[in-house]
Nucleic acid binder design. Structure first.
Length: 500
RNA sequence: GGUUGGGUGGCCGAGUGGCUAGGCAGAGGUCUGCAAAACCUCGUACGGCGGUUCGAAUCCGCUCCCAACCUCCA
C-alpha cells in the first residue's frame, strides 16, 4: 500500500501525512445535502470531489467506510431565534405535501444527479430523522456534562462556558474566541432564549404549527441543525475517526459547532483530518440559489440558460471540475467549458488509442521507456499530494502526446518495454475509469451494434472512392456525416469516426 | 469591522526560490488529394511598491483589488 498520501488538514492548515486510525481502514464522513429543493451544481462539485477522494483511497487499497448524511430536519431558514422555519417544513407547506414527501422527492433527485455524474453511493447514507434517539441521547450527554442549558423547552449549547472550560472553540474556522466573547455586551438584547449570541440550539421546541416534531425529555420538538452530523458520525464511525469533509461554507458555524458538540458530549475530538472543498463560482461569484447567480445541472446539460452558449455533457462538466483542485474556487464560464469539452475528448481519444495498441514484442527499451515510467510514477505522486487531480490530468495529457506520437509513427513502440506499455494502459484505465470515474460518451464504435456496422460500410465506400480519386463522392460522404454530427479521422492506419 | 483564501499569459487553471505545468484559443511548419485529426515549434504570464537573496512570480513588509464565512447554502 502506498504510504505517502498527504492530505491538507483544515484544522491545522497544513498538509499532513495521512495515517488512518486503524491500518488499512478509513472512516470518512461527508456532510450531505439538505433535501429541500433541487440539487445545485455546487453540491455536485463537492460530492464529485469527495467521490474521487473516496475512490482514490480505495485504489490505494484502503477499506473505506464512507458516510454521507441526508439532512431532512432541523435546518432552519433565517434566524433561528426569531420566526425561523424549517426548510423542509416550509417547502412541504408551499407544495402541500408531507415533509417526508419533500425529503424523498429531493433525495431521489439528488441520487439521480449523483448517478449522472457517475459517483458511487456512500457506504451508509443516514438521515437525520432516522436518528432522533441518537440525537436526543447526545443532547442529554451534553447537558449532563454541563455544556448546555434548557430554556422554554429548547436546549442550547453553552458556547461561552465551553470556551471558558475547554478553550477548544474556533480552531477550525480561525474565529477568535475573544471576539466571540466581546460581542456579548452589545448583542445581549436580542438573544431571546439564548444566553449568548454564540450559543446555538441543539434541541428546539416546536411551535404549534410546526409539522416535524418528536417527543423528548425537554419538549415536543426537533433537533438542531448541527447535531445530526455529530450524532451520526459518532454512531457509524466512532467517537474519533479519520476524515470529515464538506463544503467550505460549512466550516463555520456548522463544523465548528459539530466539534464543540463532540467535545461537549464525550470529550472526544471527532475527525482527525478535516477536508473542505472550495466553492464553484459563476461570473466570479459564488453560485447561489438565493441571489439567482446559478445554473442547474440540467440547464447546463441542455444549454437552456443565458449563461452558456450550448449544452455540455455531464462528463465534460465533471472533467471541467477535475481540472481544478478541490481546495480552489472554480469559475464556471462558457469559454472554460468549451475548452474542457475539447480537452476531455482529447484525453478519452488518447486512452482509446492506447488501449488498442499492441506491442510488436521486439526492440529494446530506450529513453522513451524511462520517460513513460516517470509519467506513470508522477500521476500517482500528484494524487498522493492532496488529491491533485489537475496535476494528475496534466501528466496524463503529457502521456497522451506520447500515445498520439506512437500512433502517428513519430515514436516507436520498440523503444518501450512491453511491461511499460501494459503499465501505461493500466494507469490510464485505473485513473480515468476507477478514480476520476469518467465514462466514454463518444459513441465511437467498438465493433458492436448496427451503427458501427453502418459506419464500417460507409467508411469502406468512401475508401473505395478515394482509391479511385473520386474526391467528389469522398467529400460528399465526409461533409454529410459532418452535418450529421459525425467526424471522420483519416490516418495512415485507416479511418475512424467519432461523434462531434 | 473580524476570520479565511485569493490576485498567474486571450480564457480556464496548476505550481515552485534558479530547471516546460496542462487544457483551450492563436501563429508557423509536417502530414493530407484538400481538409479534419495528429505531431513539431512559438508566444517569454505571474496585482503594485519596497526588502531578503548570487537569484523570487515563489520568502518578508506595505499597499490596492477580489471572493467566501461571520444569517441559510456544498
Amino acid at each position: 500500500m502506498e504510504n505517502t498520501l498527504k492530505i491538507y488538514n483544515s484544522l491545522t492548515r497544513e498538509k499532513e501525512s495521512f495515517t488512518p486510525l486503524t491500518e488499512g481502514y478509513v472512516g470518512m464522513y461527508v456532510c450531505g445535502p439538505t433535501v429541500y429543493s433541487d440539487v445545485h451544481l455546487g453540491n455536485c462539485r463537492t460530492f464529485t470531489s469527495f467521490d474521487v477522494i473516496y475512490r482514490y483511497l480505495m485504489y490505494l487499497g484502503y477499506k473505506v467506510r464512507y458516510v454521507r448524511n441526508i439532512t431532512d430536519v432541523g435546518h432552519l431558514e433565517g434566524d433561528a431565534d426569531t420566526n425561523a422555519e424549517d426548510k423542509i417544513s416550509k417547502k412541504a407547506r408551499l407544495e402541500a405535501l408531507e415533509p417526508m414527501e419533500i425529503a424523498q422527492k429531493y433525495a431521489n433527485g439528488f441520487h439521480d444527479m449523483m448517478r449522472v455524474f457517475n459517483t458511487l453511493p456512500p457506504s451508509i447514507e443516514p438521515r437525520a430523522t432516522g436518528h432522533i434517539p441518537e440525537q436526543i441521547k447526545m443532547v442529554q450527554d451534553i447537558l449532563d456534562n454541563g455544556f448546555a442549558y434548557v430554556a422554554n423547552g429548547s436546549v442550547y449549547f453553552d458556547t461561552l462556558k465551553f470556551i471558558e472550560e475547554t478553550k477548544a472553540y474556533g480552531q477550525l474556522s480561525g474565529r477568535k474566541v475573544e471576539d466571540l466573547l466581546s460581542e456579548s455586551r452589545d448583542n445581549l438584547k436580542n438573544q431571546g432564549e439564548k444566553r449568548h449570541p454564540a450559543d446555538f440550539a441543539i434541541w428546539m421546541k416546536a411551535a404549534p404549527e410546526h409539522l416535524m416534531r418528536w417527543s423528548s425529555p425537554w419538549s415536543e420538538g426537533f433537533p438542531g441543525w448541527h447535531l445530526e452530523c455529530s450524532a451520526m458520525s459518532t454512531k457509524y464511525l466512532g467517537e474519533t475517526f479519520d476524515i470529515h469533509g464538506g463544503g467550505n461554507d460549512l466550516k463555520f458555524p456548522h463544523h465548528e459547532n459539530e466539534i464543540a458538540q463532540n467535545m461537549g458530549s464525550c470529550n472526544c475530538s471527532g475527525a482527525r483530518y478535516w477536508m473542505h472543498t472550495n466553492m464553484l463560482l459563476m461570473n466570479g461569484r459564488k453560485m447561489s440559489k438565493s441571489d439567482g447567480n446559478t445554473i442547474t445541472p440540467t440547464q447546463l446539460f441542455t444549454g437552456d440558460s443565458p449563461h452558456v452558449s450550448k449544452g455540455y455533457s455531464p462528463m465534460v462538466v465533471k472533467f471541467f471540475m477535475l481540472q481544478s483542485h478541490y481546495r480552489s474556487t472554480l469559475d464556471l464560464t462558457d469559454e472554460a467549458l468549451q475548452a474542457a469539452e475539447k480537452g476531455y475528448k482529447r484525453l478519452m481519444e488518447g486512452n482509446k488509442l492506447l488501449q488498442q495498441m499492441a506491442h510488436p514484442g521486439n526492440g529494446s527499451p530506450a529513453a522513451l521507456d524511462e520517460e513513460v515510467k516517470a509519467l506513470i510514477a508522477q500521476v500517482h505522486a500528484e494524487m498522493n499530494d492532496d488529491f491533485n487531480t489537475p496535476k494528475a490530468l496534466a501528466v496524463l495529457f503529457e502521456a497522451v502526446t506520447k500515445i498520439n506520437s506512437l500512433n502517428a509513427g513519430h515514436l516507436s513502440l520498440n523503444d518501450l518495454a512491453p511491461a511499460t506499455l501494459a503499465q501505461l494502459k493500466e494507469t490510464f484505465s485505473h485513473f480515468i475509469y476507477d478514480v476520476f470515474a469518467l465514462t466514454d460518451e463518444e459513441g465511437a464504435g467498438e465493433g458492436a451494434g448496427p451503427i458501427d456496422s453502418l459506419m464500417d460500410l460507409i467508411i469502406d465506400i468512401r475508401q473505395e472512392a478515394r482509391a479511385n480519386k473520386d474526391w467528389g463522392t469522398s467529400d460528399k460522404i465526409r461533409d454529410a456525416l459532418q452535418a450529421a454530427g459525425i467526424v471522420l479521422k483519416d490516418s495512415k492506419e485507416g479511418t475512424s469516426w467519432a461523434k462531434a
